[in-house]
Design a protein around this nucleic acid. Structure first.
Length: 870
RNA sequence: GGGAGCUUAGCUCAGUUGGUUCAGAGCAUCUGCCUUACAAGCAGAGGGUCACAGGUUCGAAUCCUGUAGCUCCCA
């Protein structure tokens, strides 16, 4: 049957993915084998597949598929997280488009809508991962808000509360006015913003004149309760204790002094607004100042803000400025660049706000679990790349309490129950809460208590993921087998949100690390180094790419250049390279397939040599790759296989065993080729699962014991892993001479080897086949149209059917002699240096001696040739 | 403002404890080829003062110090 000269991935991919699923090759159950476990970083249910997911999941799939082929019980657990704030925003928007306001709905009704939304859209991303070829055990798909996982979250909250690690407290927190919720410190992203710095007059009350104050946020003036200077600032010492009038508001406030104030900044005077700035808040606490909150939860000015009530904070800012100007209280405006916090989910400018929230006491937690830091520092949990250990250490050592409550409905509702007086207990259920109240001497019924309205931070459920996906809070059965997991693949930006916290939960709840290795991927960027994002519109749709080039091509394109921790600069040309590689493999198969082998004909010398040669190349690559894989150098391993297949297998081996025109390959050689091809497909399978499975099956025409996906990964035979570089060096040199002298590859040339090394002699038939050169067994008869070159120490004489330019030959040889003389001199001076011989390692000195000897041999030969030519 | 890291070919990157497998790979470029699997291909070639300046050493891309530029994290 005729096979197309172009590889068509679509049909093949669907066929094999279905085949793998049907035969349950991805499913895992505990058994006698060594487990190899990976938990997926749960994508957010609102997400659709983007390039970052592609990279991340391709890497995981490579690791998992290889482990499976290495005979381990590979278990890759998929799932999604509920993404409180993002999902709630989506649902609110969807309802708004239907004319429904969240505030008109009860909590229960809203959640009903949210679950509907989740059922409809929440699984999309997992379906997309299948297109990529992800070999997850889909029967194990989990969701952070499903009942069992929710129970675990509540359990943990109650437990940590009872241990005194979770507490309720009033603090300055990050407020997202768009999401209308607090955020943890990690959810605030600082960005440099060009703003204005306004210099404003605060009139003296009990002194003449005024103070000049610089602020970027005039809309908060209504919350001013003092002005503050540095106690060492001579400009203002005489004014301490006196009063100024807050502009437009006319509140009288005192001038106080504190070391915190930077004399250099602005005018050296700070307006103190405890409700809206963390530092001001601390000064407020110190001086016992009142707190005037001038903002509503949605970022508009509150009643206490007096002016522009109900206006958005940024509108109010402009209004304040123009009013100040009108009253001649604005002195000047300067350009001002500073860092402003934005909500990681909604991108709204975050407001510092005083609020009562639930916190996890991190200092106490770390004292209880010192392994969280030491395990990483001591490489018990290994980070790839290692340099990220520093970042981790820095964060842990400066850790602050974790704000775990969110003013949202979609999520795990905080299991705290309040009575009418505001007194509260923490318990798994309302019924248990009644019991808790009873212990406090309060006899209440269910209608007299009310559960906390807030939910928990999504990461407060994700941090349990490696334990909870195995139902580890319920039974140890699967946990004992699969945990700790092997490798975690994630982005460095998730290190604090998730990686660190999983390590915390791991030690607190299992006394064990959650994983052995953490592989940090980079960020996928475009050629201009911009992060690929939907808003920039610079990201191709991964599914379109798969449709156009095939999943294998996309996977290869992503991984060809993606060292751990490095950003990858994505370019469609890389995917093209992947597609071309698929096509190369495809055509290699076509060639193999069309060979009609000769039975009962003894294998030819050039075939035998080619087989011997490739066997060594194959084993050498496999050997090198074992090291690459051990170090998570997936790109290097891939490049090695790429070159092995393209250069060694296709360009050399197949050309070498390919029969001469009109002849046929021998049965034995075709059989050897089949086995090589199968080995190659197995070796590349983790990277390119589809095409490898297709060809693997075709090679054996359905008569195979197991499909590629669960076949044995090839192991290097160390005895047959020589570099074997000399034969091809010789071939290249001949081709080069042909190119230079414009001699057609079809013209047969005659050659002699003198002082030849065995690596050339042993492969002379193969060399002969590839270079169309016939080696003469007899002694060389010197004549004028011969040219000589060296391959390592061996002399190769090539007879050409054209007059040799003797002068040019002499020059060529002279050039080489000059180079070698320089080399000899350098090496010799090294060896005659007593300090070198004394200090360098013996094997290094020996190596140098060897080099010197080799150079001498070569020089001797060349000098003889030169004199022969003269 | 505090901390960490990076700088090697036109581009993206390797370069393990200092020592000719130390100056490499892929892509791109250039030259010649529609050679009976593949032009999504074949055969060749060119290209780097290893950011800069010092130092340590018999020997430095590799270790140390400083300078410049870039990146990330934290406040």
């Amino acid at each position: 049957m005729e096979i197309s000269s172009k590889y068509n991935p679509t049909e093949i991919e669907n066929k094999w993915y279905q085949y793998w699923l049907t035969n349950k090759y991805f499913s895992s159950k505990p058994d006698h084998r060594i487990p190899y476990t990976v938990v997926i970083p749960p994508p957010n249910v609102t997400g659709v597949l983007h390039m970052g997911h592609m990279l991340n999941n391709t890497i995981q799939d490579v690791l998992v598929r290889r482990a499976r082929m290495m005979g381990m019980n590979a278990c890759w657990v998929p799932g999604t997280d509920h993404a409180s704030i993002a999902t709630e925003a989506k649902v609110v928007n969807l309802l708004a488009s239907q004319g429904i306001k969240k505030s008109d709905l009860s909590r229960e009704d809203f959640l009903k809508h949210a679950w509907e939304w989740k059922e409809k859209y929440g699984g999309i991303i997992l379906e997309q991962l299948k297109k990529l070829g992800a070999s997850c055990d889909w029967d194990r798909t989990r969701f952070t808000m499903e009942p069992k996982l929710s129970d675990a979250v509540i359990e943990v909250f109650v437990d940590l509360y009872q241990k005194g690690l979770v507490y309720r407290g009033t603090r300055m927190v990050n407020w997202d006015p768009q999401g209308k919720t607090t955020l943890s410190d990690e959810e605030v992203k600082f960005k440099e913003v060009k703003d204005s710095l306004y210099y404003i007059k605060y009139q003296g009350v009990d002194f003449d004149g005024h103070l000049e104050i610089a602020t970027a946020r005039p809309e908060t003036i209504a919350g001013d309760v003092a002005v503050c200077v540095n106690p060492n600032d001579d400009r203002y010492k005489h004014l301490l204790g006196k009063k100024v009038r807050v502009p437009l508001i006319n509140r009288e406030v005192e001038i106080i002094a504190d070391d915190y104030i930077d004399i250099e900044f602005g005018t050296g005077v700070l307006k103190v607004t405890p409700a809206h700035d963390i530092h001001d808040y601390e000064i407020g606490l110190k001086f016992n100042l009142p707190v005037i909150d001038t903002l509503n939860d949605d970022g508009t000015i509150s009643e206490q803000g007096v002016l522009f009530v109900g206006q958005d904070r940024f509108v109010a800012r402009k209004a304040w400025v123009s009013d100040l100007k009108e009253h001649d209280l604005l002195i000047k405006v300067e350009d001002y660049v500073h860092n402003v916090g934005f909500s990681e989910r909604t991108d709204a400018v975050v407001e510092p706000k005083i609020s009562t929230q639930w916190f996890l006491d991190m200092k106490k937690f770390m004292e209880k679990n010192p392994k969280v830091l030491s395990a990483v520092m001591d490489d018990e949990i290994k980070f790839y790349p290692e340099k990220l250990k520093n970042t981790y250490k820095h964060w842990i050592e400066n850790i602050r309490d974790w704000n775990i409550s969110r003013q949202l409905w979609w999520g795990h509702r905080i299991p705290a129950f309040y009575d009418e007086s505001g007194d509260f207990v923490v318990a798994q259920t309302a019924e248990k809460a009644i019991v808790e109240f009873a212990k406090k001497g309060k006899s209440l019924n269910l209608t007299q208590i009310k559960q906390d309205d807030d939910v928990l931070d999504t990461w407060f459920s994700s941090w349990l993921w490696p334990i909870s996906v195995f139902d580890g809070f319920e039974s140890k059965e699967e946990l004992n087998y699969y945990y700790p997991t092997n490798d975690l693949v994630t982005a460095p930006e998730i290190m604090f949100f998730w990686v660190a916290r999983m390590i915390m939960a791991g030690y607190e709840y299992t006394g064990e690390k959650p994983f052995k290795n953490v592989y940090y991927t980079g960020i996928v960027r475009d050629k201009q180094r911009r992060k690929m994002s939907k808003s920039l519109g610079n990201s191709p749709d991964p599914l379109d790419l798969i449709a156009q080039y095939g999943a294998d091509a996309v996977r290869l394109g992503m991984l060809l250049c993606a060292p751990a921790g490095n950003d990858i600069l994505f370019d469609e040309s890389q995917i093209e390279q992947g597609r071309n590689f698929c096509n190369k493999i495809w055509n290699a198969y076509r060639l193999y397939h069309q060979w009609e082998p000769l039975k009962d004909v003894e294998i030819r010398t050039y075939e035998l040599e080619a087989i011997e040669w490739f066997e060594n190349r194959l084993n050498r690559t496999l050997l090198e790759n074992e090291e690459h894989f051990a170090q998570f150098r997936l790109s290097d391993a891939l490049m090695n296989l790429y070159k092995l297949i393209w250069d060694d297998f296709c360009a050399v081996y197949l050309e070498a065993v390919k029969p001469h025109y009109g002849e046929s390959i021998t049965m034995e050689a075709k059989e050897a080729t089949k086995l090589f091809f199968a080995q190659l497909m197995k070796a590349i399978h983790p990277y390119m699962p589809f095409i490898s499975e297709e060809i693997y099956h075709s090679l054996f025409e359905g008569s195979i014991e197991s499909p590629c996906v669960v076949s044995e990964y090839p192991i290097a035979n160390k005895e047959k892993a020589f570099a074997m570089e000399l034969p091809m060096q010789l071939v290249s040199e001949v081709r080069n001479i042909r190119a230079q002298k414009q001699i057609s590859p079809k013209e047969k040339l005659y050659a002699w080897m003198e002082n030849a090394e065995s690596e050339l002699v042993d492969f002379s038939s193969m060399i002969s086949k590839l270079s169309n050169v016939e080696f003469q067994p007899n002694q060389r008869i010197s004549n004028s149209n011969q040219t000589m070159f060296l391959i390592n120490k061996s002399e190769i004489w090539l007879e050409l059917n054209l007059e040799i330019d003797v002068e040019a030959e002499k020059n060529k040889i002279q050039e080489e002699i000059t180079y070698l003389e320089g080399f000899w001199k350098a090496t010799n001076s090294k060896l005659s240096n007593e300090k070198f011989v004394a200090n360098a390692k013996p094997e290094i000195v020996e190596k140098e001696r060897q080099k010197l000897n080799d150079a001498e041999t070569k020089l001797q030969n060349l000098r003889v040739q030169l004199s022969n030519l003269s």
